[in-house]
Measured scan of single mutants.
Amino acid sequence: EIHIRTNGEEQARKVYKMLAKRNYDVKIEQHNGQWVVTAS
């Protein structure tokens, strides 16, 4: 499982799309105001 911390919604969405293209199961979560993308 991969966790990627991003500094904002826009970046989180870019990372989300990139990983989704590679057939990862991707989730975006917010932790303490930080956007974290989780891929498995």
Rank of each mutant, 00 (worst) to 15 (best):
N7G: 07
E10W: 10
A12L: 02
D25F: 12
E9K: 08
S40T: 13
N23Y: 15
R13W: 14
V26Y: 01
S40D: 04
E29A: 09
I2E: 03
Y16M: 13
S40I: 12
N23V: 04
A39M: 10
I28G: 00
Y16V: 06
T6N: 03
H31N: 09
K27P: 00
H3C: 15
I2N: 02
V37N: 00
K27E: 04
Q30R: 09
Q30D: 05
D25Q: 14
I28P: 00
V15N: 01
H31F: 12
K21A: 15
Y24E: 03
K21C: 13
V37R: 00
K14T: 06
G33E: 06
I4E: 02
K27S: 07
E10T: 09
A12F: 01
Y24G: 03
G8K: 13
Q34Y: 15
W35T: 01
L19M: 05
R5W: 15
I4M: 04
H3R: 14
Q34E: 11
T6P: 03
D25S: 11
R5A: 08
I28K: 01
K17Q: 12
A12K: 01
N23F: 15
N32Q: 09
E10N: 08
H31Y: 11
G33S: 05
E1H: 14
I4V: 07
V37F: 01
R22S: 07
H3V: 15
Y24Q: 04
A12Q: 01
I28A: 02
K21Y: 09
N7I: 07
E1G: 10
H3L: 12
S40E: 05
A12D: 00
M18K: 06
W35H: 01
A39S: 05
E9L: 15
H3F: 13
V36A: 04
I28W: 02
N23I: 03
N32E: 10
K17L: 13
L19S: 01
I28H: 00
N7Q: 10
D25H: 12
K27D: 03
N23C: 12
L19I: 03
V15F: 09
R5M: 12
T6L: 15
R5C: 14
E9D: 03
A39T: 06
R22K: 11
T6F: 15
S40V: 12
M18H: 10
G33M: 05
I28F: 03
K14N: 06
R22D: 08
N32G: 11
W35Y: 04
N23P: 03
V37Q: 00
A12P: 00
A20Q: 14
R22E: 09
M18L: 11
V36M: 08
N7K: 09
K27T: 07
Q11H: 12
E1T: 14
D25Y: 12
N32F: 06
E29K: 08
K21D: 15
S40Q: 06
N7A: 09
I4W: 07
I2W: 14
T6R: 04
K27A: 06
S40R: 12
V26E: 00
H3W: 13
K27N: 05
E10S: 10
A12M: 03
E29M: 11
M18F: 13
N7H: 09
I2F: 13
H31Q: 11
Q30K: 10
E1P: 11
I4R: 01
E1A: 11
Q11S: 07
S40F: 12
M18T: 06
E10Y: 08
Q34N: 07
M18E: 12
K14V: 07
E29P: 00
V15Y: 10
T38A: 04
E29L: 09
E9R: 09
K14Y: 12
R22F: 14
A20R: 11
K21I: 09
I28R: 01
G33A: 04
T6W: 03
K14G: 05
R13D: 03
Q30A: 06
Q34G: 08
W35R: 00
K14L: 12
G8S: 15
D25I: 14
I28D: 00
I28M: 08
E9V: 08
A39P: 02
I2K: 03
N23Q: 08
G8D: 15
N23H: 14
E29G: 07
H31R: 10
I4P: 01
G33T: 04
